[in-house]
Computed example of a mutant assay.
Amino acid sequence: MKLRLHPILAPFFLVLMVTGGLAFYALVFISLLFHEAGHVVAAKMAGMKVRSCTIMPYGGELRIPDRHSYGKRQRVFVAVGGPIATAILLLLSMLFSFPGDDQFVRIQTAILLLNILPVLPLDGGQAISAMLETDERKYKVRSAFLVFSISVLLAVTLLLLSGLPETVLFLVLALFLLFQNISAFKFRKYEQAYEQLKRKQLTP
């Protein structure tokens, strides 16, 4: 499995270093790695083969070949793996005292609350999308949930614009998620065609 850092992390962490200091940057990065480790462990337990892991500002993304061919429970289990890992870190940071624990608690809380939002490609959105899908309406559900996610992120972006410059980090993250969803929506038909072709090849 390859571990990658998304290019957006460079400006994101640069702002953190300028505004919050190197220690805060290190805590955020460690927290993101632990969050993504939760997804990787869950994927391995679910019998999925993880090709690569890309660290994002909100957590990360696993590249799992033919992800949508796996069962609903497996995909939900992988989606909640990250938030569970972050929740464990949050609980430990609340139980034990150490230098900078207040800051660490705030970081885990922010990552956890962000990732359980019911918006793609966040973990909450991934879990809900998988639970709503059926064999007959799988592609329609995915498309509808992408439209919902795009609409929510557009509204959030407009709201954050009114709070500049204090909301610049959140604005960058919202725009990043928005463009990810727009890209997924554009390529949804190609993904559907690929899945159908793959299914035909596997059917004797």
Results as ranks from 00 to 15, higher is better:
Lys200Arg: 15
Lys72His: 05
Pro11Leu: 02
Ala155Val: 15
Phe148Asn: 04
Leu62Val: 04
Leu178Cys: 03
Leu171Ser: 12
Val141Pro: 07
Ser97Gly: 04
Gly100Tyr: 12
Leu154Gly: 15
His35Leu: 01
His6Met: 01
Glu166Gly: 03
Lys140Cys: 00
Leu154Met: 14
Leu95Val: 11
Arg106His: 10
Ile88Pro: 02
His35Tyr: 09
Ile111Met: 12
Lys72Pro: 00
Val156Cys: 09
Gly100Met: 08
Ser183Gly: 03
Ala46Gln: 14
Asp123Arg: 08
Tyr25Ala: 03
Pro204Cys: 02
Gln196Phe: 05
Thr167Leu: 00
Arg73Cys: 00
Gly38Gln: 11
Ala87His: 11
Leu117Thr: 08
Leu16Cys: 00
Gly38Phe: 08
Val156Glu: 13
Phe34Gly: 03
Gly47Cys: 01
Glu61Gly: 02
Leu95Asn: 07
Ala127Asn: 08
Gln201Val: 09
Ser149Cys: 05
Ala85Glu: 04
Leu114Arg: 06
Gln192Lys: 15
Arg4Ala: 01
Val15Pro: 00
Phe77Arg: 10
Gly124Phe: 09
Leu114Phe: 13
Ser151Tyr: 07
Thr167Tyr: 09
Leu95Gly: 06
Leu173Ser: 13
Ala110Pro: 05
Ser151Leu: 14
Tyr194Pro: 01
Val18Asn: 02
Lys200Tyr: 10
Gly21Ser: 06
Pro83Trp: 11
Ile182Lys: 05
